[in-house]
């Protein structure tokens, strides 16, 4: 199984990568390649030009700036999983990264890669949406910031223009009294989710839910925020009754696909179950 022929380009700066993207129409950025190369081998994707950005220096980093964590686009899932900054300040991203594929894939796959691939059943996109993360996109006319809610547009489609690349990924430093959980229902541990839920819950000093951010993966063309669930939590003491009642709203506004691992109806039911479990787990993780 070998890809169709293509030209291989290796820019030495991100600016150069953008120029190449702009110049060649059927071109594609290659980062970790853990999705793209498989698709090319199956001949389901056949770019004429591959722009390999993995040699560009300085694109793998994790740093804290203000109330944000800045992540270089080529930062691998393994680095995200094990970064002390992310583990301490935004543990849900670490948890999501740890559930991707397997060790070899996490060693090679990158955060920008999985975001740009925009598979609605992938682990990081769902979490990124719950985090209200940001992507810094770079094009030939400059940079722009795209919010997570605007970034995912459709199955495997993002708001990036064809000649834009991701320069940086940003997620918030989570406030105190916040608990998070990323869980998924999958046949095997490392599989793409049948349903995935990312939950971020912040309580106020009276242990009333100050904010709730719940996103669901694998229930529509993009990861989706469970807005009705969130609304049913905010302003309330999160008793189990509240959580159960809120979770029952998780199937509102979703349009799950059907495949051999789960029908649309099953996914809708599982969205409720896993929303409930994610909220419970997130709540249990809020430190005193």
């Amino acid at each position: 199984m070998i890809p169709r022929s293509f030209e291989y380009l290796r820019p030495s700066t991100l600016q150069e990568a953008v120029q190449l993207l702009d110049k060649y129409e059927e071109s594609k950025i290659l980062a970790g390649g853990q999705s793209l190369i498989a698709l090319m081998k199956l001949r389901l994707a056949s770019p004429k030009y591959i722009i390999d950005i993995t040699r560009i220096p300085g694109l793998s980093y994790v740093k804290e700036e203000g109330n944000k964590i800045l992540i270089g686009p080529l930062t691998t899932h393994d680095t995200v999983e094990n970064s002390p900054i992310i583990r301490n300040k935004c543990p849900i991203l670490s948890e999501a990264a740890s559930r991707i594929g397997d060790q070899q894939i996490r060693n090679r796959g990158t955060i920008a890669g999985t975001l740009c691939h925009a598979d609605p059943s992938a682990d990081v996109p769902t979490t990124f949406l719950a985090l209200d993360g940001e992507v810094v996109a770079m094009g030939k006319d400059g940079e722009r910031v795209i919010k997570a809610k605007d970034f995912f547009q459709d199955f495997f489609t993002t708001a990036l223009n064809p000649n834009e690349v991701v320069k940086e990924v940003r997620v918030p430093v989570l406030p105190p009294k916040t608990g998070t959980a990323y869980i998924k229902h999958a046949r095997r541990e490392g599989d793409f989710a049948i349903v995935a839920v990312a939950a971020i819950i912040t309580l106020d000093e009276n242990n009333v839910c100050k904010s709730a951010s719940i996103s669901l993966g694998s229930v529509g063309p993009t990861p989706l925020r469970a807005v009705e669930v969130e609304n049913a939590l905010v302003g309330k003491k999160l008793t189990d009754e509240v959580i159960v009642a809120a979770s029952e709203l998780a199937d509102r506004g979703i349009s799950p696909p059907s495949d051999i691992h789960g029908s649309a109806e099953y996914r809708a039911e599982m969205a409720k179950v896993f929303t409930k479990r994610a909220i419970r787990l997130a709540l249990s993780r809020i430190g005193g």
């Binding site: 290796r10 290659l30 390649g33 853990q34 190369i37 081998k41 390999d52 393994d78 894939i105 090679r108």
Partner: peptide, 18 residues
């Protein structure tokens, strides 16, 4: 699986040029 620059990778998911 091989070790490339110190980490395990699946060599069927890497281009030789990389």
């Amino acid at each position: 699986t091989i070790i490339m620059n110190g980490v395990s990778v699946k060599s069927c998911m890497v281009l030789a040029y990389q």
